[in-house]
Write a protein that binds this DNA or RNA. Structure first.
Lengths: 132, 132
DNA sequence: CGCCTATCTAACCATACGGTTATATAACCT
DNA sequence: AGGTTATATAACCGTATGGTTAGATAGGCG
């Protein structure tokens, strides 16, 4: 029902470790739902819903063989993600390079590292103490 | 407090067109919240929540300059997505190639090729990780 | 100091999501 | 036909998400 744009649907589908694990299994080759579901500790309906999400996201396709629904990876969905990423790849590559430069400079001169190249060192620093 | 793994948080953050548009704007350079928010038809708190999601996903960092909180892209988050994708990139490239081959063959020899499926997903190496 | 700008938090609401159990559909097998 | 296997749907539940309005917090400025 949410009827999101395709890229949003794809990212949403990937935002669940169970579904990513399903894709990893399908990378081994086409398989039926039961076989796919084997490693997961959840009931059939949950599996079925995950598969529907993956299918609507363009990440898998399902065929029919008797009562089985063989699932296989669909390349198009991940390709869409990759295409979206392409615009940013150069950008973060540049900035990671500069971060590397900065960290190297830090190691070379631990006393007073003054970057100037990078805007700020900003290492993962979770929420500050705004809340009192 | 969903406490999801980092990759799930990142994909979830990307599964919203407003947040992707924010990243696109930040690709132009660091900017303050108000400036970032200008194109979006929603109230401040909604913007603030989106930024928090992006920050916790490792996609942006926020500094401080007086009462402003300048936001900038963080390369690490998208790098994580790209690394995850890397395992699949070869896979779909192969399969898209085989689709191309198949379509070329169809054009070259029409009428003879009538397989039920384009290509069997015979994949030499699965992705390394099923989670995270 | 008091005011203004910029931004975040709190509380709330509607809807979506991920799971469950119970039931339905579809196809195969005697 | 009746039974079994494989999978999907329906109805429901608790929590998460994306938005709102109202108020809080932080810092510059008259």
């Amino acid at each position: 029902m949410p009827r999101a744009d395709p890229l949003s649907s794809t990212f949403a589908a990937l935002a669940d470790p169970t579904r990513r694990a399903m894709l990893a299994r399908l990378a081994l080759g086409e398989m039926n739902v039961n076989e796919l579901a084997k490693p997961f500790k959840m009931t059939g309906p949950a599996i079925s819903k995950h598969l529907k999400v993956l299918e609507r996201a363009g990440l898998i396709t399902r065929g029919r063989a008797a009562q089985r629904r063989p699932c296989q990876l669909a390349p198009a969905g991940l390709k869409g993600v990759d295409d979206w990423l392409a615009d940013y790849r150069r950008l973060w590559a540049e900035r990671l390079d500069r971060l590397d430069d900065y960290l190297s400079a830090l190691q070379a001169k631990p006393g007073q590292a003054k970057p100037g190249k990078v805007a700020a060192p900003q290492v993962p620093k979770p929420p500050r103490s705004t809340k009192g």
